[in-house]
Amino acid sequence: MLRVLLIFGALVAVIVGILGFRGHLGPGRPLMVFFDMDFQPKYQPQGQSAFFSDGRAQRTPPTGTVAFGGADFFGDAGAPTTNPDFLQADDVFYRGKEGETYVKRSPVSTDMPLLRTGRQQYGIYCAVCHGPSGRGNGILTEYGFVEIAKLTDPRVRSMPDGQIYHTIANGKGLMNGYGHQIPPAERWAVVAYVRALQWSQNASMDDVPTQFRAELEKGE
């Protein structure tokens, strides 16, 4: 009887010794026994392809083409009212320019949802360097970033809206363009939020709605 139990114990020890426990961290690829249809002959987003020389399944759009994002699918399917901005020809909205000069005012009307979007996007992409209040004191200043623009400076305050939009999209000086990370409509939201920051950082007590003044004075 003892012999049976001993052999059983040894068997368990060998199996656990070879296969280990659940949750073990390691580079071993997940074991697949039945492949079923787990891997199908189709390209996944950002997948790899041995066919194209750069190894990517996703292709770069040819120069001069317009991305289809936000495109007019209804118009494309024959709807009577079509979106005239299908080709993103609106220079003011998509490039912040009118001819060669930057537009003074944002073409997007400012409301609370826009400012909320702007705050969210600013917090994700801009606050890292420019700081949560726009004073150029983001976390990356501790890691060797210098010469970060203070968005609350008179220089930036007097910039036309279109120039701020253009800087977000294409970068300036040491700053890379964020056009590939922030789509056009959200760039205008960020412009609106930057304006709000500039105002709040240079505001006087007269700018504060009366019901909030007591609270603010207590804080100081």
Binding site: L19, R22, G23, G26, P27, P30, V33
Partner: peptide
């Protein structure tokens, strides 16, 4: 029960 499951096969996969 213990090994034939993603809890064993997948959890902990940490490729370099």
């Amino acid at each position: 029960w213990y090994y034939f499951t993603p809890k064993y096969a997948r959890v902990g996969y940490r490729p370099e």
